[in-house]
Amino acid sequence: MADTLQEILLAPDRRPAVVKDVENLVDAEVAGKSGVSGLAVKSGYGLIKKINSTFVSDAVDSMLDNFVARLEPYYAEHVKAGSGSFADRLTGNSSDVADALLGVTDDRAAGSRRDSVKKVYSKLRPQAKKHVEEALPRLGELIDKHAAAVNAG
């Protein structure tokens, strides 16, 4: 039985499927956005994917280890509790989990040598937390699905 997210999500034979599932999650979250801000998100995302069709999967893959490390304490609590879904645990701690996950991109932006990247990121960051919080139920379901598959095998 796999007890850590690292065992579940980062195993070499499982990682490509996890990256693809996270990319699909991002696609679904973007598609579900509405209103003026949703239109802006959809437009920007579409443009990025048009310019570089592998941008999202490459970004997910390059940051996956760090995202998993940030989620690991929440997963350990979930395993220790022994009940409920991981999606429920994430949504029950949505503000803290969103900050933890965004810490990965915060670190990446802070480490950039390009001032333009830092400037754009600082403008987008306040809205990003809301979007991450909204995506947590799907993320929890994705992780629950992979955990069930690993533990069934």
Rank of each mutant, 00 (worst) to 15 (best):
A11S: 14
P12T: 10
P12F: 09
D13N: 12
A17C: 01
A17L: 06
A17F: 03
V19I: 15
K20D: 13
D21H: 06
V22Y: 01
N24E: 13
G32Y: 03
K33P: 01
K33F: 01
S34Q: 08
S37Y: 13
A40D: 03
L47G: 10
I48M: 01
K49G: 03
K49A: 05
K50G: 04
K50D: 06
I51A: 09
I51H: 04
S53Q: 13
T54R: 13
F55C: 03
V56R: 00
V60F: 08
M63F: 03
A69N: 13
E72D: 08
E72I: 07
P73F: 02
P73V: 02
E77R: 07
A81E: 11
G84H: 14
S85G: 07
S85M: 03
A87E: 10
R89I: 07
R89D: 04
N93F: 06
S94W: 00
D96A: 11
V97H: 02
A100F: 08
L102E: 02
T105E: 06
R108S: 14
A110P: 08
R114E: 12
D115T: 15
K119C: 13
K123P: 07
K123H: 12
L124P: 00
R125A: 14
A128V: 05
K130A: 14
E133I: 07
